[in-house]
């Protein structure tokens, strides 16, 4: 009778565990795991990829650690015993399983990675706005196609203004050393390299002001090479642009 009870207990325990795991997985689907949701369509694509990787990571590490923990507890040396365990050298099916399953997981991860990557690196041939960005020690120059140019001056961080829900094409170069054009809230960074021109698109979805910074070590004041990004409505953007042109 008591044994029967015990078995039942155990089953309930397992069910509870499974439910808890399910709950974690489900609630994780809405969590960003500490990352930004992404204020651009590209950034959102990254966020969901990151979510997928994070869930996979939790499951993989979770299973690994559960296994480890189980082994450590179950097969610990008890006090006063001196036992020579069975000397097992290998077990082919087990080895095949723990090789093949990771291969399958990796293939899955790769497929999602490529999809997201194609979305993020796609450059539109007729963007709504084009900005040339030049990085230099230790500041930024943002030049719009109508000639408006905003540049770092002393301790004043320059501001990059972008229209929401429109696609901006960025052309990125460096004047001296390697810099990193990085907007954390957009989940995106790209190097500004001397001798190389880089292109990428942003399609911001939310208006607001965000921090931007240089991510690649570029010398003494690397830590202070900041800028800000202000995303406004397209009409606000147009009026801002003409205003700047006039000034």
């Amino acid at each position: 009778m008591s044994i029967f009870n015990f078995v039942k207990e155990r089953h309930r325990g397992r069910k509870g565990l499974a439910l808890a795991a399910l709950a974690i997985v489900l609630s994780s689907c809405s969590s960003t795991f500490g990352g930004y949701k992404g204020a651009t369509t590209q950034g959102q694509s990254e966020a969901s990829l990151y979510q997928g990787f994070m869930i996979t990571g939790i499951v993989v590490a979770g299973i690994t650690f559960l296994g480890l923990f189980y082994v450590l507890v179950r097969f610990r040396r008890r006090k006063g015993t001196n036992r020579i365990p069975a000397q097992r050298h290998s077990n082919l099916p087990v080895e095949v399983i723990y090789t093949v399953i990771p291969v399958l997981i990796v293939i899955g991860l790769f497929v999602f990675t490529v999809r997201s990557e194609n979305k993020i690196t796609q450059v539109s041939s007729n963007p709504n706005v084009s900005v040339d960005i030049t990085a230099f020690q230790w500041g930024w120059r943002f030049t719009y196609s109508n000639g408006v140019s905003i540049v770092s001056q002393g301790a004043n961080y320059p501001q990059l203004v972008l229209p929401a829900n429109e696609t901006t094409k960025v052309t990125l170069v460096s004047q001296d050393v390697v810099h990193g054009f990085y907007i954390p809230a957009f989940n995106f960074s790209r190097y500004a390299l001397p001798g190389v021109t880089n292109y990428f698109d942003f399609t911001p979805t939310n208006t607001g002001t965000y921090v931007g910074r240089c991510s690649a070590l570029c010398g003494l004041y690397h830590g202070e090479m900041l800028f800000s990004v202000r995303v406004v409505t397209p009409t606000q953007f147009q009026s801002w642009l003409t205003q700047q042109k006039a000034a």
Binding site: E117, P184, N187, S189, S215
Partner: peptide
């Protein structure tokens, strides 16, 4: 894509 977000 994840590296773009957290590189450096």
């Amino acid at each position: 894509p994840i590296d773009f977000a957290v590189h450096d």
